[in-house]
């Protein structure tokens, strides 16, 4: 049995660790609400909520966030489609040559963007795809295929075989089986994939910095530019940071279980 002291020790350890995580974020939130440009903490009654509006306006977030949303929505939709097709093929139908193809796909989870960014940029430049949304969406999609296939393959394999057999008896073709049976049954995995894919796309900085300039800046890149210009106005810089972090944080509050289980499973792989 767990004694009372042990229980208290547990909470002390956990709380100290939790405070270490929360403290930096907390000072940042307080700075965002400070009327003082140095971000000095103030009483709740003196909070200056207008900082968010000022930062929104000065950083040009209206456009940057629209761009980020367009990219994220397209990437998530495409990602799910590609993952469903690939996962169903490798998990249920089997693929000619999968003994070779599947390891090659898994290898992709270990290939970092740095290894391919240089030729990607110069090739895309040749085809006029740099600084275009379709260009960056295509790269996000390609980079996401390995995890998508890995994830949906596992989800489809976890479904009961009998369901597929009885659907086959009814004469359902592979397309109908995927659309009307397998995909709906694997919904929880699809939702996790949607959340992770959205987070990865929204949080991306490196790819957007390389490929998109000027009026095509994403929210993260716009924030980087904004903080460079507002070095001395910490309160606005912090407010801008919170605006950019907000969409993923809200999703994280609502769907924390899916985020955590998805990231742990994605980390552990096999």
């Amino acid at each position: 049995m767990v004694s009372k002291t042990e229980r208290i020790v547990n909470y002390v350890v956990l709380t100290v660790m939790a405070l270490l995580v929360l403290f930096p974020v907390g000072t940042f939130v307080v700075a965002a609400l400070s009327p003082d440009r140095s971000g000095r903490p103030v009483k709740v009654s003196e909070f200056q909520w207008g900082n968010f509006a000022t930062a929104w306006h000065d950083a040009g977030f209206a456009r940057a966030i629209t761009i980020s949303i367009v990219i994220a929505v397209c990437v998530v939709a495409g990602q799910v489609l590609l993952a469903l097709l690939g996962g169903y093929a490798f998990g249920v139908l089997g693929v000619v040559g999968d003994k070779v193809l599947f390891p090659i796909v898994l290898l992709g989870m270990m290939i970092s963007l740095e290894a391919i960014i240089v030729p990607l940029y110069y090739q895309f430049r040749t085809f006029g795809l740099t600084n275009t949304l379709p260009g960056i969406i295509l790269i996000h999609l390609g980079m996401g295929v390995p995890f998508g296939i890995f994830w949906m393959r596992a989800a489809f394999r976890a479904l009961p075989r009998s369901a597929f057999e009885s659907a086959e008896m009814d004469g359902a073709g592979p397309v109908r089986m995927l659309r009307s049976m397998a995909a709906p049954m694997a919904k929880p995995a699809v939702y996790t994939l949607i959340l992770l894919s959205f987070m990865w796309t929204w949080n991306d900085y490196f790819l957007s910095l390389v490929f998109l300039h000027g009026s095509n800046q994403t929210a993260t890149v716009a924030l980087g530019v904004f903080q460079g210009r507002y070095v001395t106005q910490i309160n606005l810089m912090a407010a801008g940071g919170l605006i950019v972090a907000a969409p993923v944080l809200v999703l994280y509050v609502v769907f924390q279980r899916k985020f955590i289980s998805g990231m742990l499973a994605g980390a552990i792989k096999e």
Partner: peptide
């Protein structure tokens, strides 16, 4: 036959993956 159908299903994701990751990797 279903394995060939499987390849057809996987063709699109594999093509995007090859285009964006594998080919540039070789070019790197």
């Amino acid at each position: 036959r279903t394995r060939w159908v499987g390849l057809a299903f996987a063709a699109l994701p594999l093509a995007v993956y090859a285009l964006v990751v594998l080919v540039p990797l070789g070019q790197s």
